[in-house]
Simulated scan of single mutants.
Amino acid sequence: MSLQTTDPIADLLTRIRNAAAVGKREIRVPTSKIKHVVAEQLVKNGYLVDVKLEDGKPRGTLVVTINNEGENSTINEIARVSKPGRRVYASASEIPKVKSGRGIVLVSTSRGVMTGSEAVRNKLGGEVLLKVY
Rank of each mutant, 00 (worst) to 15 (best):
N76W: 04
R87H: 07
I95P: 01
K44C: 04
G46I: 00
T74P: 10
Y47D: 13
V98I: 14
R59S: 13
N45R: 09
I75E: 13
K83S: 10
G60C: 09
L53A: 15
A90F: 02
D50Q: 13
P96E: 11
P84T: 01
A90L: 06
I78M: 10
G101M: 05
V49I: 09
L62S: 14
S93H: 09
R59M: 11
P58N: 07
I78D: 14
V64K: 02
V63Q: 03
L106K: 00
T74F: 01
E71V: 06
L48P: 03
N76C: 07
G56D: 11
V64H: 03
I75W: 03
I104Q: 02
E94L: 12
A90T: 07
V98S: 02
V51T: 15
V51A: 04
I104V: 03
G85E: 07
R80I: 05
R111C: 06
A79D: 12
G112M: 10
S100R: 11
N45D: 14
V105G: 03
G85S: 08
L48S: 03
G56P: 12
P84D: 13
S73M: 10
Y89Q: 05
K97I: 06
R87Y: 05
K52M: 15
N68A: 14
V88E: 01
P58W: 00
V51M: 04
S73D: 15
T61D: 10
G70N: 10
G60R: 08
V51K: 01
R102G: 05
V113H: 00
T109L: 15
P96F: 08
E54K: 12
V51N: 02
S110P: 03
A90Q: 06
K83P: 01
R59V: 11
G85L: 08
S93F: 07
S100W: 07
Y89C: 09
T65E: 14
A92Q: 03
I95G: 02
D55K: 12
P58G: 05
T61I: 09
P84C: 11
I75M: 11
Y89D: 11
S82K: 01
T61P: 03
S108V: 00
N68F: 12
D50A: 14
S82C: 04
E94R: 09
V64C: 13
S91G: 15
V113L: 02
I78V: 08
S73P: 05
V107Y: 00
L53N: 15
G70E: 08
Y47C: 10
G46F: 00
L53C: 12
S100N: 13
V88C: 00
E69W: 07
A90I: 06
T109K: 08
V81H: 02
T65K: 09
A92I: 03
I104T: 00
G112P: 04
R87E: 09
N45F: 04
K57I: 08
Y47M: 11
G60I: 06
R80F: 02
Y47A: 08
T74S: 15
I95Y: 04
G101K: 08
T74H: 14
E54G: 13
A79P: 01
D55W: 02
S108L: 00
N76H: 08
R80W: 06
D50N: 15
